[in-house]
């Protein structure tokens, strides 16, 4: 009895959690005005792709999609290399000031990113990087949380593996590239999803740093579109679907790694 009640409750809670997404998909397949009726329709009378056509043909959302894909991939790729190098050094090298440096980095995680945005804007503007991909990529090149995750993981790699590679004449970089990185694959995948999704979903900084609609990433383009189309729920839902679908696919494919990352991040020391 208790078991059945628990399951019924979970199923209802689960459906409530999903309801906004189901309605989003369904409204994106409706004709103009069909989502603005009383009583509201949960499903379209007839399925149409007119909203998606409009987004791609008239509103050039394909460009925004491309922007999102490019910056998310580039930030992920660069930050994986930078973070893994630094994480490995913190895990497996001894050098002066290491512990102090690491705890300085960790404690500065409390500083909200918003604090940096004004000077960062001025700095990137003086380089001429505002409204280019570089404006998004540069602040994302390294990430303290990423360094922390890699360090935690790399510490579990036995020193003997590194030492025997050195005996065989491997250089420091070869050890990192040919031994450490492959051994770190699980945490690299985790960090890759975190970074990719974080960059894809980011809003405030792209809103500030990208000033031209052809450079907007999807969230900024969507927010901009919302200003002009407050009365077109069908169109806006189609835009939301385009923004969310890629991220759901990435997540479903690699969810195991993502969940592990959250758990690792929550284990202190």
């Amino acid at each position: 009895m208790k078991k059945i009640t628990l399951h019924i409750f979970l199923i209802i809670a689960g459906l409530l959690t999903l309801a906004p997404f189901i309605w989003m998909v369904s409204a994106s397949l409706m004709n103009d005005g069909h989502a603005s009726v009383y009583p509201p329709r949960f499903f379209p009378d007839e399925v149409t792709f007119i909203q998606f056509e409009r987004l791609f043909s008239r509103l050039s959302v394909s460009r925004n999609l491309l922007n999102s894909v490019i910056v998310s991939f580039l930030v992920t790729f660069i930050s994986l290399i930078f973070n893994s190098m630094a994480g490995y050094a913190f895990a497996k090298y001894r050098f002066a000031g290491k512990d102090k440096l690491f705890s300085l980095l960790l404690s500065s995680m409390i500083i909200p990113a918003q604090v940096t945005m004004l000077p960062l804007f001025l700095m990137l503007k003086s380089f001429g990087f505002i409204n280019t991909y570089l404006a998004i990529i540069i602040p994302g090149m390294a990430n303290i949380f990423g360094i922390f995750l890699i360090k935690q993981y790399a510490m579990s790699i036995p020193d003997s593996i590194i030492e025997s590679a050195r005996m065989d004449g491997a250089s420091d970089f070869q050890i990192y590239w040919k031994i450490i990185l492959p051994l770190c694959t699980p945490i690299l995948v985790t960090l890759a999803i975190f970074t990719f999704m974080g960059t894809w979903n980011d809003f405030l900084w792209p809103l500030i740093a990208l000033t031209d609609s052809s450079m907007y990433t999807l969230p900024v383009a969507l927010a901009n579109l919302m200003g002009e189309h407050t009365k077109d729920p069908e169109l806006m839902m189609a835009g939301s679907v385009i923004t969310i679908i890629p991220i759901i696919i990435v997540f479903l494919a690699l969810q195991k790694y993502y969940i592990k990352g959250i758990m690792m991040g929550s284990v202190k020391e």
């Binding site: 050094a89 440096l101 303290i144």
Partner: peptide, 24 residues
Amino acid sequence: SAYFFLAPALMAIFVFFFIPVIAA
């Protein structure tokens, strides 16, 4: 070698995080 591995990430964090915090 340690500094070689640390340099890219720490430079990025220093220039594009710590300096902006101080500048702000």
